[in-house]
């Protein structure tokens, strides 16, 4: 009599389990590893700030990448948008006077502009997005270098500009706000429905009248806004913007977001992919904190991250086979055939 309710409960439980299993399991395992080595991920007063900032940065980058990549648009220009928007907003704020909020708002404005220009180049030239993003990356890196005349931008002593990145509450507000806006825009708005329609079937969506061009440009602009916040957080937390990023020095940012994107997509099956990106960012930041606590060499970190990416992808691409193996399905089938055979003989 209670079967429909049970089924709903079961679904909810499954959803919660699927959503939380990866961050919780990873967090627990890494905590145990740290404890076994006599260290802790959160060893000092700054640890929480670093952690929240890491989560914010990874989450924003992952969403920025996923927005376009899910629609088949590789975007190598993410890092260059982050740097150039930070450079422009920093130059204005430091020269004309301003505080952290001013710089953040300016960063976002320029991030939207730069993203829109990137999207505009893509829709005007109608070239594969991977090509236009390479061109845009070169362009923006060159612009950042030229604007600063090849000189790094320093914030040393300008504590009024860096106020946000030293405050956990402000960064949590940024995370929550971005998450909310992203969910509303991409999951609950007409724009989002059109975005998903284009993702699922480009040709039929265009034929039904969905304006693909404006949708793409808005995606690029939103991605630019997110990366501008990343650029702002990074610049003001370390106190310097390095413009020595010519010849594709900025594209590494994109690669670091692949694993959290896949994790987020996996979690998205059980709840919401944007929430998944947040949880994936938490997972990856656990790793960063652990690497720091254990003083893991950067080459070892690279290998671990690469192996995790491949293993996770192998699982995702062969999920059914893995589940069958895990459930010992084949062995059970064999056993079942054998017992069926014996029963028949009897």
């Amino acid at each position: 009599m209670n079967t429909p309710t049970l089924s709903k409960t079961k679904k909810t439980a499954r959803g919660i389990f699927g959503t939380l299993i990866i961050p919780v399991a990873v967090g627990l395992i890494l905590w145990i590893v740290c404890a076994a080595n006599g260290v802790s991920m959160f060893s000092n007063a700054q640890s929480l700030t670093i952690f929240v900032r890491g989560v914010a940065t990874v989450m924003l980058t992952t969403i920025a990448l996923a927005i376009n990549l899910n629609s088949g648009r590789f975007d190598f220009s993410l890092g260059s948008v982050a740097t150039l928007s930070a450079v422009i907003s920093a130059q204005i704020t430091l020269n004309a006077g301003g505080n952290a909020l001013t710089m953040l708002i300016l960063s976002i404005v320029f991030g939207i502009l730069l993203g829109a220009v990137s999207g505009g180049i893509y829709v005007l030239l109608r070239l594969p997005p991977i090509i236009t993003s390479l061109g845009v990356a070169l362009l923006y890196e060159g612009l950042a270098f030229t604007i600063t005349k090849g000189s790094n931008v320093s914030f040393y002593g300008k504590t009024d500009v860096s106020g946000i990145t030293t405050n956990v509450l402000y960064m949590l507000i940024i995370i929550a706000a971005v998450l909310l806006i992203t969910i509303v825009l991409f999951d609950r708005s007409r724009f989002g429905y059109r975005y998903k329609a284009l993702m699922a079937g480009q040709k039929v969506s265009v034929n039904t009248g969905i304006k693909e061009v404006s949708n793409a440009v808005v995606c690029y602009a939103f991605s630019g806004a997110l990366m501008s916040i990343v650029g702002y957080l990074t610049a003001t937390s370390v106190g310097i913007i390095s413009v020595d990023i010519l010849n594709f020095g900025s594209i590494g940012v994109m690669f670091s977001a692949f694993l959290p994107m896949f994790i987020g997509g996996f979690i998205g099956r059980y709840s919401n992919d944007k929430l998944g990106y947040l949880l994936a960012a938490i997972t990856m930041t656990f790793f960063s904190m652990t690497y720091s606590a254990l003083s893991v060499k950067s080459s070892t970190q690279s290998i671990i991250n690469a192996v995790l990416l491949v293993v996770f992808l192998i699982y995702l691409s062969n999920e059914k086979t893995v589940k069958d193996i895990a459930a010992l399905k084949h062995i059970r089938n064999l056993f079942k055939k054998k017992t069926d055979g014996e029963t028949n003989n009897d």
Partner: peptide, 18 residues
């Protein structure tokens, strides 16, 4: 700032050629 300008020109040239 020549290096930056050169890269901007390269980017424009690249997109135009493609």
């Amino acid at each position: 700032g020549a290096n930056g300008i050169a890269q901007i020109v390269r980017a424009i040239f690249f997109l135009a050629m493609v």
